[in-house]
Design a protein around this nucleic acid. Structure first.
Lengths: 247, 247
DNA sequence: CAGAAGTGGAGAGCTTGCCTCCACATGGAG
DNA sequence: CTCCATGTGGAGGCAAGCTCTCCACTTCTG
């Protein structure tokens, strides 16, 4: 006896890129933006765990409105994903353009932490979507990975040729260290929005080749790209303490 | 150094404060240990989020039994906490005993990652309890912090005097970098239980003073102990993806 | 072998989150 | 200004999933 939701209406309501479907009413459009903004800031604060009720509250709207605009949670997240891809693309381009590859690397890591780090939701979105793309195949469009990977390869190898980067690190190491640093950003974020720079500096010093060639050799082999993907896929996103603490 | 054979303290019982409580029946005592072991491994795998039903299943017992032995969830966690304090204490002592302070530091970080890193639950337990202690006052007994802090101070300063550790890092930096590295362990764990060593090596290289004194200066100031505590308190524990992905 | 001690696991009761539904509000075309 | 398609709020249905209780039943041990 399932009255399939009232979606039976002729209008599939895809305001997306597809066709110039009837534009939203002015107020509706305004609200749409409010929702996206609210989602962004709530997710930034609390991670993807945040409920849509929270998003609605932040936006000063009812949940119903949120659901009218985005058929479900994932649709909302998808919309944010697009934003994120754009911003990462920008960073990657900037980094590649740096004349000295090492500077490009430093820029890349710093910029990623600046944007990603402050924004827990962004990271979660990226990971969640990336997983979907990996497991569902890339029918969906460009993954972050396939945009960033070539850039990173180029940067790493160039920086090594130029003698700045220690010769025994692999591109995947940069990714791993970046993830580690995101942890630092999250950890220190409540207190200071810049403390992570100190620790990034230490990591960067570890990456820079020593003039005396005295880096300790890395005996453990680097992850290859597939392994990196596997880790990515297994990586949990979302994270919430439930305040279930103590009486 | 070799993987330390996870010496779980052969602890003879809680020694409940109440009084010389009647000893448990033989089978009950066996089950009590089963539960602790199961809790340890389930929490290690899934973090503190895991339900007690899961713990019971892992132990091959009914939930009822678990609740008969531990009045509630927190009691069970407390019991694990004691184990953990013991194991960290051991690590700290070992580290201090190392004749060259730098080696002590390396040992400390490595050993912490070996035990803590593999064991998501351990980390969560530590953080959760540490928070309680911080917010509820240390009526409870020794916190990990007050055990580890002096050791770390000594080690850092000695290593700097001995010329191995770059002079501009603070003891809190070690803690922060350790937390970062835990992230790496978690990230790579599903794939390889040793991959983190590679990245720890890079971090350690960043910490070692350069013979030519060419470390980039750390402009960002270090966290002090109180700030470190504040970060700790704000740090979330628990972390679970809910498999809510995909239809 | 009696009965104290221990056990299992169904289910009560709770919280939380997603999403639906529909009486009501409102922008803007005519 | 009027009218109605379009949009809105938010209570509540539904589904998970958790902690913890209860008690008929089993197992130890003196």
């Amino acid at each position: 006896m399932e009255t399939k939701p009232q979606v039976t209406a002729p209008e599939p309501e895809v305001a997306e890129i597809g066709g110039p479907s009837r534009p939203l009413r002015r107020d509706a459009e305004r609200n749409r933006r409010l929702i996206l903004g609210a989602a962004k800031s709530v997710f930034a604060r609390r991670g993807l765990e945040a409920s849509l009720d929270e998003v609605a509250k932040e936006a000063g709207l009812g949940v119903g409105t949120v659901y009218r605009r985005f058929p479900n949670r994932d649709a909302l997240i998808d919309a944010l994903f697009d934003d994120m891809v754009a911003s990462i693309k920008l960073i990657a381009e900037h980094a590649s353009a740096e004349p000295r590859a090492w500077d490009g690397l430093v820029y890349f890591m710093t910029a990623m932490l600046e944007t990603q780090g402050h924004d827990k939701g962004l990271r979660d979105v990226m990971i969640a979507r990336e997983q979907d793309l990996i497991t569902c195949g890339p029918e969906k469009g460009s993954t972050v990975r396939e945009m960033v990977q070539p850039m990173l390869y180029d940067l790493v190898h160039r920086a090594q040729r130029e003698g700045d980067l220690r010769p025994d690190v692999a591109p995947t190491d940069i990714g791993v260290l970046l993830i580690a640093s995101v942890g630092v950003v999250e950890f220190t974020a409540p207190l200071s929005s810049t403390a992570w720079r100190r620790h990034l500096a230490v990591v960067l010093d570890g990456l820079r080749s020593r003039p005396d060639g005295a880096s300790a050799p890395l005996v453990e082999p680097a992850l290859d790209d597939d392994e990196m993907d596997a880790c990515m896929a297994g990586w949990k996103y979302g994270t919430q303490q439930a305040d279930r603490r103590r009486a």
